[in-house]
């Protein structure tokens, strides 16, 4: 399942479709645009408006209508402080909400995935991995990844201490200037909120070396996390992935 904000990197969509083709599986798309058109959510207004928070409704609607028992994701505990408390099998109530104070204890390797109808689980198999582990694994197992993770030339704008990619959704302010830089992305989200780093790392080896020397957290360039100290926790409680 892909929750599509409509504000995508074209490369992400290409990669998604190639994977689906290769595996021969069915893709479910939950569309934020449709949620807006149906009046389920309203577009944010103002200068820093994004569709990040709107995804929650789309995600939960798609989970409900497809009767999904368990949504498996790549969230890791080292990414963000609210994620540090996640269980491997993380329970979501009827409203898709997370109750961090009332989680099921998880001991040894025994997991409890039982739920009532209407409830679901989020499962995070690589909870205990770090960013470095991920890169080492991709390298060792030779796993295909979107080109966006490799350093490449791109039109970008300096905003909120990071390089935001130029796109049809970006509204430039007077003092802002589009420049071309060699950058790469450490995490990928909606194109309007994902900042890149200047980098020369255009191979897996170079990325691994770069990551090993990083002095900032992986999601540090995600403006969605920076809205407040508890931005991630607040969204997760509501059902954000």
């Amino acid at each position: 399942m892909h929750v599509d904000t409509g504000h995508n990197f074209p490369e992400t969509i290409q990669f998604r479709d190639a994977i689906i083709n290769k595996l021969g599986v069915k893709l479910i798309v939950g569309s934020v645009q449709e949620s807006i058109d149906d009046g389920r959510v309203a577009e944010e207004k103002g200068k820093n408006a994004t569709r990040n928070a709107l995804q929650i409704t789309t995600l939960l609607d798609a989970i409900e209508s497809n009767k999904i028992d368990c949504a498996i994701g790549g969230g890791r505990r080292d990414e963000e402080k609210a994620r540090a408390k996640e269980r491997f099998f993380s329970h979501r109530d009827d409203f898709g909400q997370w109750d961090p104070k009332n989680q099921r204890p998880e001991l040894w390797n025994i997991f409890n995935g039982r739920h009532f109808e209407g409830e679901h689980f989020r499962a995070f198999p690589i909870s205990n991995w770090t960013e470095m582990d991920v890169w080492n694994y991709i390298k060792r197992e030779n796993i295909a990844i979107p080109s966006l993770y490799f350093a490449h030339e791109r039109e970008v704008v300096w905003r909120q201490d990071t390089w935001i990619p130029n796109s049809e959704f970006l509204v430039l302010e007077d003092h802002e200037e589009v420049v071309t830089k060699k950058i790469r992305f450490r995490t990928l989200g909606d194109i309007t909120i994902t900042g890149g780093d200047e980098s020369e790392a255009d191979t897996l080896e170079k990325i691994a070396t770069e990551v090993a020397g990083m002095r900032n957290t992986e999601r540090g360039n995600r403006s969605d996390d920076k809205r407040s100290e508890s931005a991630m926790e607040d969204r997760k409680r509501q059902g954000y992935f």
Binding site: R77, D78, K81, A84, K85, K101, S127, N128, T130, M132
Partner: peptide, 10 residues
């Protein structure tokens, strides 16, 4: 601190 939190370092 009210619940188990996990930290990683290398």
């Amino acid at each position: 601190t009210i619940d188990v939190a996990y930290r990683y370092f290398t």
